[in-house]
């Protein structure tokens, strides 16, 4: 693929985002409103309020027209880049999401880098020493790690490492101290990051390690590995150049497909650890029936998934000439 054709390909895929986002909005708009619960009930709580005031609030929030009318208004607003205001905080939704984004990105990138790096290394070592104590351990631990529910694992880690051992803080992203030098602040955030990142990483790590091991075992049995060996090159070159690059191809696909679980996993983990990111924002918005925030989150995740798939395809093409040149 030449630079020009790559550019055209990326552009085409980005244009395809428009109908995808359109569909995401329509589906989720109805889905959210089909769910039981009413934002008005959440806002007024148990207070005895006159029906006129409720009707007034309803019209102020744009919830008084028919559902199709509401959808059309919403679509035209979104087309102008306006995602509305949060029912709860009254702040513009875009602002709310952007303010929460860095915390989630930090958590996600940390855990995913950890899971990919350690997962591939463990998978490869496991495959190279099939049947060894390391292999047996990795296989057993990854089955367990893959099966554990994230919220339970988070609570157990919290119980163990912060309640019992007091090694890591259990809640939040930083300490409530004002006088911190920038360096102290970085360490403080890193300290808070350990448990939630670990909680999320274990699942992905288990998945990636198992996948890398299985692919590596399969590739190491193929004829082109024998051919590579027959050339007298080092075993390291055989394993890491010839086998690994072929074995990671399916891993790349799964990593790309799993980007979406980064957000769903974040909802649970961020809630357990009171991490001030998008996951908890989504959780709170669901509880409060904060429709504008929820809608914007779904659109955001939709775009993220499409872009993640695009990046996966580009990496795939870069790794595999059969994709790149056909």
């Amino acid at each position: 693929m030449t630079a020009a054709s790559l550019y055209r390909y990326v552009l085409l895929r980005l244009v395809q985002l428009v109908p995808v986002v359109f569909l995401i909005i329509i589906l989720n708009f109805f889905l959210i409103r089909l769910a039981p619960g009413d934002p008005i009930a959440y806002i007024i709580g148990d207070a005895p309020i006159a029906d006129e005031l409720v009707a007034d609030l309803r019209s102020k929030l744009g919830l008084d027209g028919s559902i199709t009318q509401q959808l059309l208004i919403y679509l035209s607003n979104v087309a102008q880049g306006d995602f509305g205001f949060s029912y709860v905080s009254r702040a513009p939704v875009t602002e709310v999401i952007l303010s929460r984004l860095p915390a989630t990105l930090l958590l996600m990138i940390t855990q995913y880098v950890l899971a990919i790096a350690v997962g591939i290394v463990l998978g490869v070592l496991s495959a190279r020493h099939q049947g060894s104590a390391l292999d047996v351990t990795v296989t057993a631990v990854s089955v367990v790690g893959y099966a554990l529910p994230v919220f339970w694992l988070g609570q157990m880690l919290m119980l163990m490492f912060s309640m019992k051992l007091g090694l890591f803080p259990a809640q939040g992203m930083m300490s409530l101290r004002y006088s911190m030098t920038p360096v102290e602040k970085v360490f403080d955030i890193a300290h808070h990051l350990v448990l939630p990142a670990l909680t999320l990483a274990i699942f992905n790590l288990a998945l990636i390690a198992r996948l890398a091991r299985a692919n590596m075992l399969q590739v190491l049995r193929l004829e082109y590995i024998i051919f590579a060996r027959s050339k007298g090159i080092s075993e390291r070159a055989v394993v890491y150049r010839h086998a690994l690059r072929n074995a990671v191809l399916p891993v790349v696909t799964v990593i790309g497909l799993n980007i979406k679980t980064l957000i769903t996993g974040a909802v649970l983990t961020e809630t357990v650890f009171a991490w001030p990111g998008l996951g908890r924002l989504t959780f709170d918005a669901i509880n409060a029936r904060d429709y504008p925030v929820l809608m914007a989150m779904f659109v955001f995740v939709g775009i993220l998934v499409v872009i993640a798939n695009l990046i996966t395809d580009i990496i795939y093409a870069w790794l595999d000439p059969r994709i790149r040149l056909q």
């Binding site: 193929l222 004829e223 082109y224 024998i226 051919f227 590579a228 010839h242 690059r245 072929n246 790794l319 595999d320 000439p321 059969r322």
Partner: peptide, 9 residues
């Protein structure tokens, strides 16, 4: 065809 590595020139 099986003995050549598919992803190297």
């Amino acid at each position: 065809s099986n003995f050549l590595n598919p992803i190297f020139s």
